[in-house]
Amino acid sequence: MNDRAVELLEQYEIEVLRTRKGRGAIVCDTNRGCLIFREYSGSQERIELQNRLLKQIMDAGTVKVEVIIPSREGTLFVRDNEGTKYVLKTWREGRECSIQDKEECMEAVRLLARLHGCMELPADCLNLPVAFSPEKEYDKHNRELKRVRKYLQQKGQKTWFEISLRGAFDPFLEQALSVTEEWGQYQREATQGGKSGDTAKIAFCHGDYQYHNIIQDGRGWFLVNFEKCMCDNPVRDLCLLMRKLLEKNNWSISLGEELLETYEKERPLSAGSRIDLYYRLAYPEKFWKIANFYYNSGKAWIPRKNQEKLEKVIAQEKEKQHFLDQVFREVGRLR
């Protein structure tokens, strides 16, 4: 961040004692405690929604989260001379949640369940965003996968990574298409059958719930970076957290069951949400990320890390399918 951005802090009703760089932002010691000042790329509508949800979560008092500090003029962000937007938020200096510590992972799941209990807004609220459509997102992913496969088919001399990627492509693409079709069919049937859930309230999720955004200091846990909050089934967050933990633990059935049990002790999942979670986990998201990153980046030199990620996804596929069959064996009946 440009040091000149520090001058923008004069637009806030705070006394800045000291500033330092951290996490791509400016950390500020002030008379109002530790704050963080960073660039903001979203819209006015998005930050207003974010602010509303954060206030609601704070009022509930079950989870500690960041708070957006308004400027003297009452705006939620300020601009520099070039039009770049910046937002000032409360901050705690601590460490990220350790994905190596099982109890911390379980606490992250408990926090998530409590968070979701505070992230519903009345359906008649003005200016609510359009609900996220997983089917549209995965349709887009599938088109991208087909584009990458076509590119690999037409490419002449291939690197070892490209040979490995092409060799694994067809089964993963078939899986992606199958999951998308099944999930879309279920959603249409659920809508026609009136199973879409409580329409009096609209659920929101954090949008990027991973260990980087779960901070612990001497006062406990603190959740940050709600910029990607969106109108979607809260299992979106649970899926992201579970996938990251399970990939690092070779899709352990016992770990997956314990994560789900821990979440449901705080916030039971409906049959529809369990089905939703199953399809989100079943989609080959990691393979899509690897293929899409490859296609959209320079191909003159492919990092060894990409090959390692691909090999891990291929090696874990059998364990992942076994995990889904065992942990979500009731999904067929629920449908």
Score class of each variant (00 low, 15 high):
E174H: 00
E174D: 06
A176C: 03
L177C: 04
S178A: 01
S178P: 00
V179L: 01
V179F: 00
E182M: 01
E182C: 02
W183L: 13
W183H: 11
G184N: 10
Q185T: 05
Q185M: 01
R188W: 14
R188Q: 14
E189I: 07
A190M: 10
Q192K: 01
Q192P: 02
G194V: 06
G194T: 04
S196Y: 15
S196G: 09
G197R: 05
G197C: 12
D198M: 08
T199W: 09
A200M: 09
A200N: 09
K201L: 10
K201M: 15
I202G: 01
I202E: 09
I202M: 13
I202H: 06
I202T: 13
A203N: 08
F204V: 03
H206D: 15
H206L: 10
H206P: 13
G207M: 13
D208A: 14
D208S: 15
Y209M: 10
Q210W: 13
Q210H: 12
Y211F: 14
H212R: 06
H212Y: 11
H212T: 05
N213C: 11
I215A: 11
I215C: 07
I215L: 15
I215T: 08
Q216N: 08
G218D: 09
G218S: 08
G218K: 12
R219I: 07
W221T: 04
W221Y: 14
W221E: 13
W221V: 12
F222Y: 13
F222K: 01
F222E: 11
N225R: 12
K228R: 12
K228V: 03
C229F: 02
M230A: 02
C231K: 13
N233H: 06
N233E: 05
P234H: 05
V235P: 01
R236A: 14
D237S: 08
L238N: 02
L238R: 04
L240W: 03
L241M: 15
L241G: 07
L241H: 11
R243F: 01
R243E: 05
L245Y: 04
E247N: 15
K248T: 11
N249G: 09
N250D: 15
W251I: 02
W251G: 03
S252I: 00
S252Q: 04
S254M: 00
L255K: 03
L255N: 02
G256Y: 03
G256L: 09
G256A: 03
L260S: 10
L260V: 10
E261C: 03
E261R: 04
T262H: 10
T262K: 07
T262P: 14
Y263A: 05
E264N: 06
K265M: 02
R267V: 11
R267M: 05
R267G: 06
P268F: 15
P268Y: 12
L269Q: 03
S270A: 11
S270I: 15
G272H: 06
S273L: 08
R274H: 13
R274N: 06
R274P: 09
I275D: 12
I275V: 13
I275M: 07
D276P: 02
D276W: 14
D276V: 10
Y278M: 09
R280H: 15
R280F: 11
R280W: 12
L281D: 05
A282F: 06
A282E: 02
A282C: 07
A282L: 07
Y283M: 09
P284S: 02
E285R: 11
K286F: 13
K286D: 10
F287D: 03
W288A: 08
W288T: 00
I290R: 04
A291Y: 13
A291K: 07
N292F: 14
F293N: 05
F293S: 11
F293M: 06
F293I: 05
Y294L: 07
